[in-house]
Nucleic acid binder design. Structure first.
Lengths: 242, 242
DNA sequence: GTCCTATCTTTACGTTGTAAAGATAAAATC
DNA sequence: GATTTTATCTTTACAACGTAAAGATAGGAC
């Protein structure tokens, strides 16, 4: 209770002081340097700086290296500063995951829009899903592997829902039908679950290195992309009644 | 180096003192009780007791609660005792994961053997995969979600390989062919990757609660098993040339 | 110009993993 | 059978972590 109320106050304040924060953000970010001596007491936009520092730490040192104190060090502030902006480690990780889901969703939407045929749209989105995870394994870990995610946070809840809704929409498009909001047939649900499971399972196994045994046995170093393509192309489901 | 050499010594010793350890294991395990006052300095089979304690802690408090000190408390020994048997936390977690993979594999093999038709064998194994994860979510987390796994440990390496080899064998059987050891066609590799990805992805999403949105939109509380069945039955791949 | 409030730092505490040294009992050797 | 060796377990210690609480600072409101 005390934790959240404290952070809620911060959130309110951040919303209220939006103008000053933006003004500070327009300046060159040299004042962030701790070594230069002129470290001002007020940072300007520390919240954003901490999130960027967190992503750097994450991709450099992995999920285990993502600690509140390491992020604070990376940003050049005291170790307790992040607590003020995110409440606790769960808060920081959750906000980072929300950013990840948004980037994730944008990549899939962009990939889908680059194709015209519905089936190709789905294929391109699936490849974008895997490509994002390969390019940002740390972020993918935060989104799908971290034990410290608080989905009651609006930002994370919305970003996560949006990503999966986009995936569902893609499945509907490749089936030439619109997925309804309320009711779902078993066949539709199975199609959605199949698409999610295939692409998410493949990504997880690939990032964990559990597909290397297969890739090594393929002719002349076939890439993971090629395997993914073959896997997806062979997965055209049968019509419902067959 | 110092760490492993220390633990290697322990391993050697355990192998050498197998007879006494077994003799101690035959006695009733009342001496483990700390409250009863008569705590002997030597436990008898502390290694096994620690692994069982670890599984209890894991399923009770989750992956985050699985600490060396918590396991030691659960077993009623000093906090540094586990270090002697497993080197460090990574060692304990890895041995626990190895046990999980063995149980996992046994469940799948047993399910496959309960059926006669090849396709039904695969379906039953896949369902056993999901059922094990639902029954032991903590163990599944240790196997597939923990950042502290050391696959260079022979026990974990072998158990993990055996589990995935069993899965591969199941895929081969359902395709009415034997998967070769060395070379693999792209079509065969895709079939294996598809089976792994489908069942592993579905399990991960289900345990993370990300399928509840789908399950809630299905008619009258359709179970996850039903969704899994529909998903798998619709996933019969097309023949290679089509 | 003064007060208020958000922001950031300092200090402190309990928990963790891990190392190192000490205590104890079982096994090995003579 | 006594002694030495070795494995096992405990005690002590330390750095890093998350988190709480209090203090310092500065920007904005009045």
């Amino acid at each position: 209770m005390a934790k959240t109320s404290r952070e809620n106050k911060v959130v309110r304040t951040v919303a209220r002081t939006r103008k000053p924060a933006r003004a500070a953000a327009e300046r060159p970010a040299e004042r962030r340097r701790k070594s230069s001596g002129d470290t001002p007491y007020h940072h300007g936009d520390l919240r954003e700086a901490l999130l960027q520092a967190a992503e750097r730490v994450l991709e450099r040192d992995g999920l285990a290296g993502l600690t509140l104190r390491a992020v604070a060090r990376e940003a050049g502030v005291s170790h307790a500063a992040p607590t003020h902006h995110f409440g606790d480690l769960t808060g920081l990780v959750s906000e980072l995951a929300a950013i990840g889901f948004r980037m994730f969703n944008e990549a899939m939407v962009a990939a889908g829009n680059s194709e015209t045929l519905p089936i190709m749209k789905g294929l391109a989105s699936a490849k974008a899903y895997v490509a994002y995870a390969q390019a940002h394994p740390g972020m993918y870990g935060v989104m799908f592997r971290s034990a410290r995610l608080d989905y009651s946070r609006p930002s994370l809840h919305e970003a996560s829902d949006a990503a999966f809704a986009g995936l569902t929409r893609g499945v509907g498009a490749s089936r030439h039908e619109q997925i309804p909001e309320d009711g779902l047939s078993l066949d539709q649900a199975a199609a959605i679950a199949r698409a999610w499971s295939l692409v998410h399972g493949f990504t997880t196994l690939l990032l964990d290195g559990r597909l290397t045994g297969i890739l090594e046995r393929l002719p002349e170093g076939t890439s993971a992309d090629k395997l993914l393509d073959a896997m997806l192309r062979g997965s055209v489901p049968r019509p419902p009644g067959a």
